[in-house]
């Protein structure tokens, strides 16, 4: 089952999204929050993200959900410091972080492969709320 990492500038945001997503998840599913800095301040920490990717890793790989600007840069940096064989099994979703995470978690929970989970997460960009 594809693992999910949630990277936000805010620890509360990352934790909150994880909490919401867990409602849709299988008990054994890995959803790891990697928000904020070690000292509790706002920001993203590439070391923390790389540890979260390792924690979330399964044979099926990991999707990383990101919020703003430096979350992407920190995740790219995290990938650079990971082992190459792990790196090959990680994708960063270009998607809204909350809706994308929910979509990814549901898709992963049915055992879909990495690229399909990525496509579903990124599909959240097109999701209408008010019809």
């Amino acid at each position: 089952m594809v693992g999910i990492v949630v990277v936000s500038h805010s620890a509360k945001v990352a934790e909150g999204i994880r909490e919401l997503a867990l409602q849709m998840a299988k008990p054994e599913q890995k959803i790891i929050a990697a928000g904020g800095m070690a000292d509790g301040s706002i920001g993203t920490d590439a070391m923390r993200v790389s540890e979260a990717i390792v924690d979330a890793m399964t044979d099926a790989g990991v999707i990383v959900m990101v919020d703003l600007g430096s979350a992407v840069l920190s995740t790219d940096t995290a990938l650079e410091i990971l082992d190459e064989n792990l790196r090959a099994r990680v994708r960063i979703a270009d998607a809204p972080i909350l809706e994308g995470t929910i979509g990814a978690v549901v898709e992963a929970s049915v055992g879909s492969p990495l690229e399909q989970v990525l496509a579903t997460a990124e599909g959240a960009r097109e999701m209408r709320k008010c019809l």
Binding site: A38, G43, T44, S70, L73, T77
Partner: peptide
């Protein structure tokens, strides 16, 4: 570099961190 990427927090962390690495 490793210290900057885990303590700066903003975009300059991964940018300068990567530069030093």
């Amino acid at each position: 570099g490793m210290t900057l990427i885990s303590t700066v927090g903003g975009a300059s962390g991964p940018l300068y961190g990567t530069a030093f690495m």
